[in-house]
Amino acid sequence: MKDFKSRLFSSESRLSDLITAHPSLLTLLTRLGISLGFGDRSIADVCEASGVDTSFFLLICNVYTFNNYVPSTATILGTDMTGLVPYLEKSHKYYVEKRLPHIERHLDSIAQKLSGRIGKVFISFYNEYKHEVEAHFLHEENDVFPHIRALMAGECDVTYSISDFLQSHSDIEGKLNDLLNIVFKYLPPQVDDDNVLDVVYDILRLSEDLKKHTFIEEKIMVPMVKHLENAILK
C-alpha cells in the first residue's frame, strides 16, 4: 500500500499532466462536472473553479487508474462524498445515452451482413443485455440513490438498507464479455470489416469502465452508506 501512496495523484499536479499520463481519464471529466479548456491549472484550482471537491475527484481518478487500489475506510469517510450520487447518475446516463447507442450502431451494421435469422438472434442477444443494464441502473436510481440522498440529508430512512443492495447487485459486464467473444472469434469472415474492430474496442472500453463503476458502488458507496446508516440508527 505504501507503494500506492507515492504513485497516487496529488492536488498540486497539473490536470493536463494527469490526462496526458492517463488519457482514459478524459472521459471521466464531464461526468465529474469538469469541462475541457482547463489550461495549465492545477487539479485543485480546476476543481475549485468547477465546484468539485478535490479529494473526491482524486479518489475517483485514483480508482480508475490503479487497478489494485482499494481506498481505506478512513479515506472514504474523510472525503466529501456529496458528489458521489450525481457522479454515478451521470455515468449511467453516459453509458445509456452515449456508449451503448454507439455500440448498437456498429452491431446493427454487422447484423445486416449476417444472414437474416442469425442477424436477428445476434441483435436480440444485444437487446436483452441492454435491457438488463437499463433495469440495473433504474433500480439504483429509483431505490438506492434516493436512500443515500435521504441519509445524507440526515433523514432516517429505514425503508431500504444498503446490505440488500450488495446482495442483489448483479454483474453487468459478464454478457459484454460474451458479446466480445462472439464478435471477434465467431462471426463469419464476410463481416470482417472496420465495424468489427471498432466495436471490439468500444466493448473493451465500456467493460473496463463498468468494472470501475461497479467497484465504486461496492467498495466506496456501500461502506460510506453503511457508516451513515449506523450513525443515524444510533
Binding site: 435469422r117 442477444f125 454478457k175 467473444n181 462472439i182 465467431y186 462471426l187
Partner: peptide, 13 residues
C-alpha cells in the same frame, strides 16, 4: 461465453 443467450448465438453462428 458464459450466458445461455450468448451460447445460443454461438450455436447459430
Amino acid at each position: 461465453i458464459k450466458s445461455v443467450a450468448g451460447l445460443t448465438v454461438y450455436a447459430m453462428l
